[in-house]
């Protein structure tokens, strides 16, 4: 039987639950006992997914704001390991996790693999797959340390929805190794509205051809939860501000999805697109250069495209 610890550190319970799929890939048919530890508010939402849920006995942790106390979180995880001798420890690769995991690996003298995106395992030989060189290369890594298998995993890489036990076992643990905190959170500035198109993963960009209906791009952007960008010709006509110009002399962007409407694709514009995952080009001219680098080309009028696509998207929502 394999014992795993999953750290449920921040408010996102789903992040922790999803890691169960990773455990599943690690050990397959072998029986596993999954332990969860972390933010008390989160633990409640893990009921039914985890075998064991651990809370601190003396409520020491609640006294300090544990959320960003990297060293104390590491201390607790180390104590848990010493008590339970886990085969593997999985940590979500969020801001805190990325600082906790490496420290813990030094403590436990074991190998750590960051940002695992896939797992290949036959139960005994386990390879953790992760990207390197800005995603250009994939590496398969093995642990050589004598300690537990350790990995950090980003959100949405794995998914898990099935409940595993009727009732999780709750345990109280007397953490002894809590130190005075070396870091204090002073204040938080909330999520700023993504002013910068460089931050957006989905961009709907309008070119010279969209001048007469440029406003409608916002509707499509909203439906896809993206932002609107523009090529130089639109900026020149003062239909949109320079801050959303994409191109060699505007901003360089790396969105996941780029929908280019009425954009011919001159090199000056294309130079602003680096590493995008998917490109849809909507253009009346099939010879426009941008069509050669698009995944999907829609030959036709941009205004018609937006209206028809929005109708299709909303129709689906209504069907729900």
């Amino acid at each position: 039987m394999k014992k795993c610890l999953i750290y449920a550190g921040n408010e996102n319970a789903k992040e922790a639950v999803d890691l169960i799929e990773a455990v599943d890939h690690l050990y397959g048919q072998v029986n596993t006992r999954i332990y969860g530890f972390g933010d008390p508010k989160v633990l409640k939402s893990l009921e039914g997914y985890f075998d064991v849920l651990i809370r601190d006995e003396g409520s020491e942790l609640q006294k300090n704001d544990m959320k960003f106390d990297i060293i104390n979180i590491t201390n607790c995880l180390e104590e848990l390991y010493q008590a339970y001798d886990f085969d593997s420890i999985l940590i979500p690769a969020n801001y805190v996790g990325r600082m906790v995991a490496p420290r813990l690996s030094i403590r436990l003298e074991t190998g750590l693999v960051a940002d695992v995106t896939a797992i290949e395992s036959d139960g005994e030989n386990i390879e953790l797959i992760r990207p390197a060189y800005s995603g250009k290369l994939m590496a398969a890594i093995r642990n050589r340390g004598r300690g537990p298998l350790m990995m950090s995993v980003r959100q949405n890489v794995f998914q898990w929805e099935k409940l595993r036990v009727e009732k999780s076992q709750w345990k109280k643990f007397p953490f002894k190794n809590i130190e005075a905190s070396e870091v204090t959170l002073l204040w938080t500035e909330g999520q700023e509205a993504m002013e910068d198109i460089r931050e957006s993963e989905i961009l709907i960009a309008g070119g010279g051809g969209t001048a007469r209906y440029f406003d409608e791009l916002e509707d499509l952007a909203e439906a896809l939860q993206g932002r609107v960008a523009a090529s130089r010709k639109i900026i020149d006509q003062e239909i949109a501000p320079r801050s959303i110009q994409v191109g060699q002399s505007g901003k360089t962007i790396s969105p996941k999805l780029y929908i280019a409407i009425g954009i011919s694709g001159a090199i000056q514009h294309i130079e602003g697109l680096k590493n995008l995952d998917h490109l849809i080009a909507v253009n009346k001219k099939r010879h426009a250069p941008i069509c050669s680098i698009a995944d999907l080309v829609v030959e036709g009028d941009g205004k018609e495209f937006i209206e028809k696509l929005l109708r299709r998207i909303h129709r689906k929502d209504q069907e729900k």
Partner: peptide, 10 residues
């Protein structure tokens, strides 16, 4: 404590 067993292109 970790070793790269192999690499491949995505």
């Amino acid at each position: 404590l970790t070793e790269v067993s192999r690499t491949f292109m995505k």
